[in-house]
Design a protein around this nucleic acid. Structure first.
Lengths: 221, 221
DNA sequence: AAACCTAAGATTGTCGACAATATCTAACGC
DNA sequence: GCGTTAGATATTGTCGACAATCTTAGGTTT
């Protein structure tokens, strides 16, 4: 559904990688479970070579861990893991917001404001699917707006899938919709004002709030 | 020389990966050059399978780039690449310093101060090899002191090799030794005072200075 | 009964061969 | 002469088999 169109699979390993990644993020392959190469080769109808290739790439995303001569395991979800992940996210996305305030074009900022307006309408009608698609879209635009390829890779190809894995498997975020909207609005304002310092600070606080919201769910489960 | 003892190669792909990584960082394999699998297989006396494995891991370190059905190339060094890299580094190591101020044990902080003292003696005698070994050692301790495994992985296994590649191939840092020492001292003080906010700020400024120092060399070459 | 060795089974690591794709070369048509 | 196309060559992707290593089960010893 929310597939990145840029990610078109051209080789067989690509396809297997994307599918396996989705299955891990969505929990079809359980968190913490062991990945047998022969097993997966049979399940996805490919040779062990492409499975190894896919596993190798999944390791880059921090979705699995490998030990030599032993095998690969899906990462486990824990409160500490979530905390660590969000500390990194806070750091990187804060920098992304700072750079976006400097590097986004006026046109891009306008479109970002348009996106926000459309979200506002959606929130008013009470639809709550906002969180998943809209929130990700918002953050992606700012990340891409940083124009820093390193940062973009790290976040889009690296951390975001793990973040999504936590979101999906702990149940999507709850009643924070309207308050998150205000935070988004202030971040966009700071970017529009070309106030890099403030944009970074607001983004960091926004992510801190999000983390606390998720963490409260984790402990109450 | 400055090999991380934790990185012992147990499989053949490990050995090839470490060696190829070193060759890339040191410039034995030229930046920007194409990597032919058959070529490397012959040069390192291993099968193409282990070369592919090694290449796959090097991609995780951001040291090479791959395109399907075309091949792998060593990343190129550019001023923009350096800027982007240091923006990410500033962000992540800033967070590392913040967390180190919170999570390092009193004992670890004492040892960090000892390290600083020994550096002070070295600087006074005018030895300049400080930069390479000592500086890396200093930063590593703070990174590890964050106790955030994500952050540690991203920096130690990811960005630091690329940073080293820039350092090595643009000539090691120059006359900034004594002024860098003062910056280090203030960072340690902030950590010892458990002042997370200040530690992050000082680390970020320290890294900004370092970047400018490197960038000036790049343009003058 | 607990700890330790041993052998069998299962899993990952490595290899060489074949298939699919891209790149280069040269001939052809306009 | 230049662009285009077709074939030849080289490179990467995929596969199945074998080797090396780990894990498990069973038996032996203390």
């Amino acid at each position: 559904m929310t597939e990145n169109p840029a990610e078109q699979a051209i080789t067989s390993a690509d396809k297997t990688f994307y599918q396996l990644r989705r299955d891990i993020v969505e929990g079809v392959v359980a968190a913490g479970s062991k990945l047998s190469e022969a097993d997966l080769a049979g399940r996805y109808n490919v040779s062990r070579a492409v499975i190894r290739e896919a596993i190798s790439r999944l390791e880059s995303c921090h979705l699995i861990e490998r030990k030599a001569n032993v095998g690969a395991k899906v990462v486990g979800l824990s409160e500490q893991g979530l905390t660590e992940l969000y500390q990194v996210r806070e750091s990187l996305e804060g920098m992304a917001a700072r750079l976006a305030a400097i590097n986004m074009t006026d046109e891009e900022i306008e479109k970002l404001q348009d996106l926000l307006s459309s979200h506002f309408k959606t929130v008013k009608t009470g639809e709550t699917y906002y969180q998943e698609a809209g929130d990700v879209d918002f953050h992606y635009r700012i990340i891409l707006g940083s124009k820093n390829q390193h940062l973009i890779n790290l976040l889009v190809n690296g951390l975001y899938h793990l973040i999504r894995m936590y979101r999906v498997q702990l149940g999507m975020a709850g009643p924070r919709v309207t308050t998150a909207f205000d935070e988004h609005k202030h971040i966009v304002q700071a970017i529009a004002n070309r106030d890099a310092e403030l944009a970074e600070m607001l983004m960091r606080r926004h992510i801190q709030y999000t983390q606390r919201n998720l963490a409260s769910k984790l402990t109450s489960n």
